[in-house]
Design a protein around this nucleic acid. Sequence first.
DNA 1: CTTACAGTGAACCACATGGTTCACTATCAA
DNA 2: TTGATAGTGAACCATGTGGTTCACTGTAAG
Lengths: 120, 120
Amino acid sequence: MVHYQARLDTTFAALSDVTRRGVLEQLGGSDASISDLAQRFHMTLTGMKKHVSILEQAGLVSTEKVGRVRTCKLGQRRLEEEAAWIEQHRQLWSARFDALDELVEHLKRKEKADAQRKRR
Amino acid sequence: MVHYQARLDTTFAALSDVTRRGVLEQLGGSDASISDLAQRFHMTLTGMKKHVSILEQAGLVSTEKVGRVRTCKLGQRRLEEEAAWIEQHRQLWSARFDALDELVEHLKRKEKADAQRKRR
DNA sequence: CTTACAGTGAACCACATGGTTCACTATCAA
DNA sequence: TTGATAGTGAACCATGTGGTTCACTGTAAG
């Protein structure tokens, strides 16, 4: 359960960079080498290597080096935990706002009743 | 559309810290002051203030100061975009892996056929 | 009025991040 | 063998992050 939080830390951090999200998108289409990705995102090989390492660390990408080229593809982790976390908290959000909605409704009804009482 | 990416950046970054996720969880239960949160997470007021500011910046928390106490509650943004991004990419993931599954199935059938051909 | 309390802002610290260059290794191709 | 190509790692740089302390403001309460 300690790992769970650390995992969310690293995954969300990995997703918090526009380049890395772009790489995931790219790899969703087709596998690619470091050079491919570096060129696509206007970056040095070294820079792209770092991004790929971070994604790999988070389990979102897996790589294999054959000959001199390292091929990157989508990894085993499918963001289940992250999706679950977000969904769970969206429900909390909704619960809170539904409560607010109900309060508003309650106040509306009360206001109406008060107005009627006044009229009497 | 440029804002969209920047927004994802700041939101995922906001979610990438275990303390901030804890604060969201807490606020899902009930509103709280900075002092409440600081105490709950064993941190100075100043430190907690920074976290709250980051969450507020990301639209995940909203605050109001009345008297000397600032009350924090869940904000307007309900992680729709983030949930959508993750779901969309989970589908990409699935598509890629389904393709892999099919390839494996294909190879299995081929292997079987080859074996039968050999036997003749 | 005085004291205590809640928050704020500036300054500081150690460390992480996103990027670069440079020197290097290993592999492919002529 | 010679050269070009793909990647790697170390070092460096500017900036950001998560946290602190300290000095301060404003508000509540005796």
